[in-house]
Structure formats: C-alpha cells, structure tokens
Amino acid sequence: MSSTGADLTGPTTGSIPRRRRRVPFWDNARYLCIVLVVLGHAIQRLTYDSDIAFALYLALYAFHMPAFAIISGYFSKSGSPTKTQMARVITDIILPYVIFETLWTLTKWAVEGEASPNFTKPSWTLWFLLALGIFRLILPYLALLRWPLLWTVLISIGSGYLPNVNSTFSLSRTLGLLPFFALGWWLHEHDIVDRLRLLDFRPWWIRAAAVAVLAATGWAAWNWLPLWQAIDLRHWLFYEDAYSDLGGDQWWAGGIRIALMLLAVVLCAAFFLLIPRGSYWWTSFGQYTMYVYLLHSFVLYPFRETGVLRDLEPTWLWLPLVTALSVLVALLLATRPVRWVFRPLIEPRPGWLFADPELTRREGRRNDPTGSRRPRPTS
C-alpha cells in the first residue's frame, strides 16, 4: 500500500470529505511486533537446551507484548461507544474468541485424545484477544478519571498481590498490561507523537542509543542468565501470576513489577525508534496482524507438542533458522489467500445475530481489535 494513498474517508466538513491516509510507521510497527510474537513462541522449546535462546526469549518478553498493547491503545477511542462500535466488540473480539477457543478444544481432543472445554480459561494466545476486549470496555471509564495512567499503574501493581486474580478470562494479564494500553491511548489523547514530531525527528545518535539499549538488555539477559533463572524472571514477564506464586511474598514485591514496567517502556521506546518510517513491500501486512496472531499458534502447535525443537545443536545454526522461519510464517499468514480462507473465522460478520442487521454493514472496511485498519489523520 502506498504511503500516500488514501484508503478511508474521514470525517466530513460540510459536503467535502477530509481524506485520511495511512502512516506507514504504524503498520511497520504492528508487523514487526507480530514477528516478535511468533519468534517468542517459536523459540520457546529451544530455551530448554540453549542459554542463548533463553536469553533472547527473556529480552523479547521484556517488551514485545507491552509494545503491542501501546499500539492498540493509541488507536483506541475513549468516547461513549456508538452502536456500531459496540457491535464491533462482539464481531471483532467475542465471536473470534469463541470460534478459536472451540477450535483449540477440538484440536486438543483430536491430538491428545481428551479435551475439557472451558471458555473462561483462554487457550495459549487467546488471552490477548480477551485483554483487548476488556481494555476497550473500561477505557471510557478510565478517561473520566484524573491521572488515568497513575490509576492503571496502581491497578497493575495491586493485582499482583491478589492470588484470586488469575488467568480466568485472562484477568491477571489484562490488569498487568493495562498501563501500557493506557499509555498508548494517552499518547494519542495528548497528541504527543505529532506535537513532538516523534515520527520525524530521529537523528543518528538517538538511533545509536536505541541500539545500545537493546544490545545492553540482550547482554544483561545473557550474562546474568543464572540469576534470571533462579528468580524465575520468565514468569514475572508474563504479568500472569500473583507475586506469592513467584516467590515474592515480601511487601515490596510490587516494586519488581514497577521495575519491569519501567524497563518495558524504555525498551518499547528503543524499539519504536528503530522502526522504519517508510512504506515497503511488507508494510501492508501490518494491517493483518490478527490473522498472524490467531493462526500462528496452530502452525507452531505440532512443533511444540512433538518435541522436534528439543536438543537441536548447534545453537548458532538452529536459532537463526528458527528466527528466519518465524519471519516467513508471519509473512505467509498475512497473505491474501490465507486471509480469504480464514476471514469468516477471524472477521465474522453475522448480520443474523443482531436485531439491526445493518450494524455489520455500517463499518465500511473491516477492522480488527488492534485498530490496524484505522488510519490516523496526518498533521
């Protein structure tokens, strides 16, 4: 997609529509984020036998989902939802969740010979779909508060002290990552990106600093790996378990989450600074991240369950190979043929479900929960 081609008509002034165009940066950011998601899941089995893979895994999980949450928040609206927007919560989140949770139940039954359907416990990657739904539902209420970012940070920290806030409806991860979603919304609400020209002003020394930050994180993950393994840092980065379940019984355990959130913000900033600003052949794939997100786990499932990624030596050969294959999977799952086949599952539009069937036709272009089809107006 051309970086200058208008693909959606924006709000109108009188009878003359104001045209909006896509900003390639955001599509590039979405696509690179989803590549990191696929890579993180792909190398998970390598971490059992490779310290380098484990260090890379920790470095990725320190920021890749917070980055996705920030992008999703940036494209979210905090105003009172219209009927069409309310319908989108059903068509873009609830229905795909039910469809794919059912598919996972059937897959586990076919492969493992048993299945215990439980729609309150999302399978593997589906937790983020529920998180996006909850984010969107509570954002209008957060926007009413003074200091909404502070409240989300307090909610995230406080939820870790409550063992009963668990993976049911992915509530623990949702509350844990809420500050990043709110941060993305806050950046757009206060026009920070445009006012500070963050997509334009990028001197070489800032990019060099971003590279240094990411490199230092990788070095720290590798050099102090025994320490991270001893404190089970991997599960701290999931924002899923209560502090007490992670050995953090002390009153100050919430301070660890604060440190991890600050680290994630710094790493996200470094990551965003390095994202290309131009339009490339792969830029348009950033509009279809939900396809990659929901489908890649089925591609990786056989490798995850058969153990073929265990005991692979040498690491210097297999880790780059798995990385390249992760990029390829992310590319293939965003292509037109795949979208054509799986669109009824990922972007269902069941007019029969609504009292007003026109609700599913008023949306114009199809959307997804991250707002990836919603261009921002340029300054």
Rank of each mutant, 00 (worst) to 15 (best):
residue 37 V to P: 03
residue 335 T to K: 00
residue 112 E to I: 10
residue 33 C to M: 03
residue 58 L to T: 08
residue 351 G to W: 02
residue 80 S to W: 02
residue 136 R to C: 04
residue 110 A to V: 10
residue 365 R to M: 07
residue 102 T to K: 00
residue 169 F to G: 02
residue 211 V to G: 05
residue 253 A to D: 12
residue 186 W to N: 11
residue 242 A to Q: 11
residue 257 R to C: 08
residue 131 A to I: 09
residue 267 L to E: 08
residue 76 S to M: 09
residue 40 G to K: 05
residue 60 L to Y: 05
residue 361 R to Q: 14
residue 266 V to M: 10
residue 203 P to D: 07
residue 62 A to T: 13
residue 203 P to K: 07
residue 374 R to H: 09
residue 30 R to W: 06
residue 347 E to I: 11
residue 172 S to Y: 02
residue 79 G to W: 07
residue 229 Q to K: 15
residue 291 Y to C: 02
residue 348 P to Y: 00
residue 327 V to K: 06
residue 227 L to E: 14
residue 290 M to E: 07
residue 361 R to H: 12
residue 235 H to G: 12
residue 260 L to V: 12
residue 181 F to N: 04
residue 216 A to M: 14
residue 367 N to H: 11
residue 146 R to H: 09
residue 81 P to R: 08
residue 284 S to K: 12
residue 126 L to D: 08
residue 219 W to P: 14
residue 138 I to T: 03
residue 342 F to T: 07
residue 139 L to C: 07
residue 238 F to T: 15
residue 20 R to Y: 12
residue 155 I to R: 04
residue 90 I to W: 00
residue 76 S to V: 12
residue 122 P to Q: 03
residue 249 D to S: 15
residue 271 F to L: 00
residue 148 P to Q: 03
residue 103 L to I: 10
residue 151 W to A: 09
residue 71 I to H: 00
residue 51 D to R: 08
residue 10 G to A: 13
residue 361 R to A: 09
residue 213 V to L: 10
residue 96 P to N: 02
residue 372 S to G: 12
residue 375 P to E: 01
residue 61 Y to W: 12
residue 206 I to W: 10
residue 179 P to I: 03
residue 200 D to Q: 15
residue 349 R to I: 06
residue 379 S to G: 11
residue 117 P to S: 11
residue 96 P to I: 00
residue 186 W to C: 06
residue 88 R to P: 05
residue 146 R to A: 08
residue 105 T to W: 03
residue 26 W to G: 05
residue 239 Y to R: 14
residue 167 S to E: 14
residue 34 I to P: 02
residue 176 G to R: 10
residue 294 L to D: 06
residue 250 Q to G: 12
residue 152 T to Y: 01
residue 184 G to N: 10
residue 248 G to I: 13
